[in-house]
Simulated assay, not measured.
Amino acid sequence: MIPLIDARPLLGPSGAARDATDAAILAAATDSGFMTLTHLPPPVPLDRLLRIFQLPQEVARGLWRQKFAPGNANVYRGWFPLQNGHPTYKEGFDAGPDIAYGPARIVSGDPLTEATPRPPAELLPDWQDEMARYYKAMEQVGTALLRAIARGLGLPEATFTPAFANGISTLRLLHYPIRPPQSFEGVHADAIWTEHAGRRVDLVGKPHVDSGFITLLCQHGIGGLQAIDADGNWRDVPPQPDSLVVNFGKLLERWTGGRIKATTHRVIGSGTAAAGRARHSVPFFFEPAPDAVIAPIPGLGTGFQPFLYGDLVWEAMMKFVEFEGLDHLRKRG
């Protein structure tokens, strides 16, 4: 079972309640690598952010990544459209820190710090401001989690957080439609079908481990997310009201000498099909600055050569999301 943890003490003052929450977070992070933080109402209703998927197709194309629309300037941020013939079937929109902080966070010459393309304000009134509020709220939760993990590990509270100043965190809006038959063409059956609860279901998000540090996921009422447990069984991560699903990536696992667990997870289509409507979710990938140096932490047994976050994340992205429109970018910058 995925632990449910009341997040209110996490964001409150020091004391017994926060200490107990720290202990619960560390237990989940070092065991399953998954948890659900409850009592966290979204800073804006998710429907307000997800309006972007109602844009006319010709407008959405103006936000597509360069891979899919060669005339567009954006190569890393923006929209990746639905594609047939892949194990994963979804479309999404990626926003970077400039969506919250403006042009000061855009650095020319590096795709990781490029501008986020915006939909026309007249078609989505207040969308920009709502995205900014959501982005900043997720940064607050991510920072609180890093501090809680440091305290739980017996480290100084600010051990991890300096690397995340001027970070390049990604706010992603996702849409998983019910898969049409043509979307399966050209994909091996083992990659798109699985058994769950005694019946055959389709995969809309293939099994994977996040490459980074912390992922904060807000589900939008439709199930399908699953995490694998220590015995190799898939466990449902059901939607909860006013909550965020938290999982950890391979880089945080490495940074903590394996203490924090990066857990394999996937999305199946059973919940979507049963409900007869599309699934949406909003993950926030909490990331450091590109020039942040990730170095071993004394006392955690982390033996690796220091590296720049931006260099490593680019390499990881090339391996993981080629179908999302980044496979033509084999060299950062």
Score class of each variant (00 low, 15 high):
1 M>S: 11
2 I>K: 05
3 P>D: 01
5 I>M: 01
7 A>Y: 04
10 L>Q: 06
14 S>P: 12
18 R>T: 10
21 T>I: 07
21 T>M: 03
22 D>F: 02
23 A>Y: 04
23 A>Q: 13
25 I>N: 01
27 A>N: 13
37 L>T: 08
43 P>F: 05
43 P>G: 14
43 P>H: 13
44 V>F: 03
44 V>M: 00
47 D>K: 08
47 D>L: 06
48 R>N: 13
49 L>G: 01
52 I>W: 05
56 P>R: 09
61 R>G: 06
65 R>N: 09
75 V>M: 15
78 G>A: 11
83 Q>W: 05
85 G>E: 06
87 P>S: 15
90 K>L: 06
93 F>H: 10
93 F>L: 14
99 I>W: 08
102 G>V: 00
102 G>P: 11
104 A>N: 09
105 R>V: 04
105 R>I: 02
109 G>L: 02
111 P>K: 13
115 A>F: 07
117 P>H: 09
122 E>W: 05
127 W>D: 01
128 Q>R: 11
128 Q>A: 13
139 E>M: 09
139 E>N: 10
143 T>H: 13
146 L>M: 15
152 G>N: 10
157 E>Q: 14
161 T>D: 13
161 T>K: 06
166 N>D: 15
166 N>K: 15
168 I>W: 06
173 L>Y: 03
174 L>V: 03
178 I>H: 10
179 R>Y: 06
180 P>D: 07
180 P>Y: 02
181 P>L: 05
182 Q>T: 07
182 Q>W: 03
184 F>L: 15
185 E>V: 13
189 A>K: 10
190 D>E: 15
191 A>C: 03
194 T>R: 05
198 G>H: 07
200 R>C: 07
200 R>M: 11
201 V>R: 00
201 V>I: 04
201 V>E: 00
203 L>P: 03
205 G>M: 03
208 H>Y: 13
209 V>H: 14
210 D>G: 14
211 S>R: 13
212 G>A: 12
213 F>L: 04
214 I>G: 00
215 T>A: 15
215 T>V: 14
223 G>R: 02
227 A>L: 03
230 A>Q: 11
232 G>C: 08
237 V>E: 04
242 D>H: 15
243 S>M: 09
243 S>R: 05
243 S>Y: 02
250 K>E: 15
252 L>F: 06
254 R>D: 06
255 W>C: 04
257 G>F: 01
258 G>I: 09
260 I>R: 09
261 K>V: 09
262 A>K: 01
267 V>K: 01
271 G>W: 01
275 A>D: 09
275 A>T: 04
277 R>F: 04
277 R>D: 03
277 R>E: 12
282 V>H: 02
286 F>A: 04
288 P>R: 12
294 I>C: 02
295 A>P: 00
295 A>E: 14
296 P>K: 10
299 G>L: 15
304 F>K: 13
311 D>F: 08
312 L>A: 15
312 L>R: 15
313 V>Q: 12
314 W>S: 06
315 E>N: 13
319 K>N: 10
319 K>S: 13
328 H>T: 04
330 R>C: 05
331 K>E: 14
332 R>N: 13
333 G>E: 11
